[in-house]
Computed example of a mutant assay.
Amino acid sequence: MDTPDRSRSAEELMAVVSQLNRRMRAASPQGSLSPSQRIVLGRLHDGPATTAALARAEQVRPQSMRVTLAALEESGLVERSPHPTDGRQVVFSLTESGRRRLTELRQAKETWLADAIATRLDTDEQRVLAQAVELMKRLVQS
């Protein structure tokens, strides 16, 4: 494949991945969570984190992350605790309610996607999609 074809494929892949993400977000229960709050819940699923670490990961200012965390804390979805080694900092982690909410969000997305695959693609197309997923995994490997 020559460079223009690769560039076009890259452009089309970025567009379709973006559209797919939007469709899955639309399929999950909105409730009162903003997109940034949803992202923070997902990050905290990997383990507790400081405000600064979350802000760096999302490339936002710490002040913006503090606002997001305050809203999540007020909703009972995250909780703060003392940093294990630095008494000047706190770490945030998911509460049980936050874990349940994150599970609901992810389950709704997965249900929508599985249904879309089952109803919009025939068996051969589903097999091709499974192969494409494996190729995409290779693209993101370090």
Rank of each mutant, 00 (worst) to 15 (best):
I117F: 11
E58M: 15
R61I: 00
G87E: 13
E104D: 14
Q19P: 02
A15K: 08
S18R: 15
Q107Y: 09
A130R: 13
T111C: 01
T95W: 02
D2W: 05
L121P: 03
E96K: 06
M1Y: 03
L113R: 08
T111K: 13
R43S: 06
M136R: 08
A26G: 08
K109T: 02
M1A: 09
G98K: 01
L139R: 05
V78D: 03
L44Q: 01
V128N: 12
R127M: 11
K137T: 09
R106C: 00
S7P: 00
E74M: 07
R88S: 14
R66N: 15
E104Q: 13
V60D: 02
D124R: 07
L105P: 02
Q131C: 00
V40D: 01
R127W: 11
G98L: 02
R106K: 07
L113F: 15
T111D: 15
M65C: 04
P29Q: 12
L41M: 06
A118Q: 10
S34Q: 14
Q63S: 10
L113C: 05
S97M: 05
E125S: 12
R43P: 02
H45Y: 06
S64N: 14
V67T: 15
V16G: 00
Q126K: 08
V67H: 15
D5A: 11
R38Q: 10
T123Q: 11
R56C: 08
T85L: 12
E12S: 12
V90F: 07
P62G: 08
E125F: 05
A116S: 05
E125G: 06
L105F: 03
S18K: 13
P48G: 06
V67K: 15
D86K: 09
E12I: 11
T85Y: 10
D86V: 08
R106T: 03
A49L: 04
F92P: 03
P82D: 08
L20H: 09
Q126M: 01
V90R: 10
Q19F: 13
L129V: 11
N21G: 08
H45Q: 10
T68K: 03
E12C: 09
R38D: 02
A70Y: 08
S93D: 07
A49E: 02
E12D: 13
L72I: 04
A26W: 04
V78M: 00
Q141G: 07
E79F: 06
E58N: 15
T50K: 10
